[in-house]
């Protein structure tokens, strides 16, 4: 039974599962640009001394900081929303992908399943084409019961194959953002 209100079917909420898997993969540095849907994840990593957290002015910066950290031996993840990814084609295609630096990205998906803002709808259509064209692997999480397995295997695969990889969080998983909220 899927609860789209942000709780998983098991004992852990989606953001708790993500934190557990980031720790399992020793991902210590978190860079992000704020997002409403990601708020519980952002608040949890900021409260957890395992993580060093950097809030950035732009997603491009976040990719640069995370790339530098991984180059220097410490794994890192970038948190952003769909419109943030849409700003990144040049830096992804010219930095982590060709240098084979496994930057992890967690993207909260907007522009689908009840979007109320016309501009978000259009921006969302650029996300997967940008990821595909720039050489970033991506997996969309929709089901809480698959989250544990898919997240762990996706992070492992990214790090072991040195492939920048995005985990897209569907509103089916997070509840997303709608005009009714």
């Amino acid at each position: 039974m899927l609860d789209s209100g942000g709780k998983g079917s098991g004992a852990m909420a989606w953001h708790e599962t993500l934190i557990a898997k980031l720790k399992l993969c020793d991902v210590q540095l978190v860079t992000y640009v704020p997002d409403t849907v990601l708020r519980p994840l952002i608040e949890a990593v900021e409260a957890d001394p395992f993580f060093e957290v950097v809030v950035c002015a732009r997603e491009e910066e976040a990719i640069g900081i995370s790339t530098g950290s991984i180059l220097a031996g410490r794994n890192s993840v970038v948190l952003m929303q769909t419109s943030g990814l849409a700003t990144l084609a040049n830096v992804i295609a010219s930095l982590p992908v060709p240098y084979q630096v496994p930057v992890l990205m967690v993207i909260s998906e907007r522009g689908v399943l009840g979007e109320f803002n016309r501009v978000q709808l259009q921006v969302a259509k650029t996300m997967r084409p940008i990821l595909d064209a720039s050489g970033v692997d991506h997996v969309t999480l929709t089901r809480a019961e698959e989250m544990d397995f898919v997240t762990e295997r996706t992070f492992d695969q990214a790090l072991q194959t040195r492939t920048p990889t995005a985990l897209i969080l569907s509103p089916l998983l997070t509840g997303g953002k709608s005009a009714k909220k």
Binding site: L29, E52, V54, C56, E60, E61, A62, I63, G64, I65, S66, T67, G68, S69, I70, L71, A72, R74, S76, L95
Partner: peptide
């Protein structure tokens, strides 16, 4: 930004 990541 890359240098900041390396420095951290």
């Amino acid at each position: 930004p890359i240098a900041l990541g390396v420095a951290l």
